[in-house]
Simulated scan of single mutants.
Amino acid sequence: MVEKKSLADILSRLTYLPNRTPEMALTGEADLAFSEIASYRDGAISVGYYSGSSEWERHPAGDEIVMAIEGHTTLVLLIDGEQHRIVLRSGELVVVPQGCWHRFEESIHLKVLGITPQPSDHSLDFPDG
């Protein structure tokens, strides 16, 4: 079934998370700041609203699309053992390559949309590769 959804309505229902930390991924403290909009292929289209930093993550089954809707962040990609920082501002997007470890840091009032394949791997520690 085809269903139209309002991104503005979904974003307005999110609870702003002012001090996101990587450890919150393990506790569920950040749950109200995120919402799945729809299933998509083998994953989902989701949004979040927060400031702070995330844990490391990667998606071995496919590329992830990340778009800053409002606010800004630094997306850190781990490529060949080196960290590459990309500043994302409102309206900008990045395609994170399949299997590439990445994280968000220094996010400020970030409303972010992600089209994320599953499964996802997460790590609090700096990944080995």
Rank of each mutant, 00 (worst) to 15 (best):
S123C: 08
D31V: 03
I79W: 02
L124W: 03
S35I: 06
Y50T: 10
T21G: 04
A61F: 10
G114N: 01
G62I: 11
V94R: 13
V47M: 05
S51E: 15
F34Q: 05
H72T: 15
E105D: 07
E36K: 12
M67K: 13
E55V: 13
V66G: 02
A61V: 05
K5V: 06
I69H: 05
E105C: 11
S123E: 02
F126M: 09
S120Q: 09
K4Q: 03
Q98Y: 07
T116C: 03
I37K: 04
E23V: 02
S123T: 04
P97V: 05
G28R: 08
S54Y: 08
T116S: 02
V66A: 06
Y49Q: 12
D80Y: 03
I37D: 00
Q118L: 12
T116D: 00
R58G: 02
V95Q: 14
W101Q: 15
P119C: 06
G52L: 07
I86S: 03
S123L: 04
R20P: 04
H84M: 14
E106T: 08
F104W: 04
V47R: 04
T73H: 10
E57W: 01
P127L: 11
S123G: 11
S51K: 09
S107I: 01
K111L: 15
E105L: 15
Q98C: 03
Y16K: 14
L77D: 03
R13V: 09
R20C: 10
T21R: 12
T116N: 04
L32R: 13
D42W: 04
P18F: 15
F126E: 11
E82S: 08
A8R: 08
P97E: 10
W56T: 03
D80A: 01
D42M: 07
E82C: 11
I45K: 03
V95F: 07
T27F: 15
G71F: 00
S12E: 01
S6F: 09
A25P: 00
E106L: 06
D42C: 13
Y49F: 14
S35K: 15
R41P: 01
Y40G: 01
V95E: 10
I45F: 05
D9W: 00
L7G: 14
L88V: 12
V112S: 01
I69L: 08
I37N: 00
I86N: 01
R89A: 15
S90F: 02
N19I: 09
L11M: 10
Y16S: 14
S120V: 14
V95N: 15
E29H: 12
P22C: 14
A33L: 11
G129W: 08
V112H: 01
D128L: 09
G99V: 10
V87H: 04
H84R: 12
P22Y: 09
S120G: 11
V66I: 10
L113I: 13
E70L: 05
P119F: 02
P117F: 00
S53N: 13
D31E: 09
T21L: 08
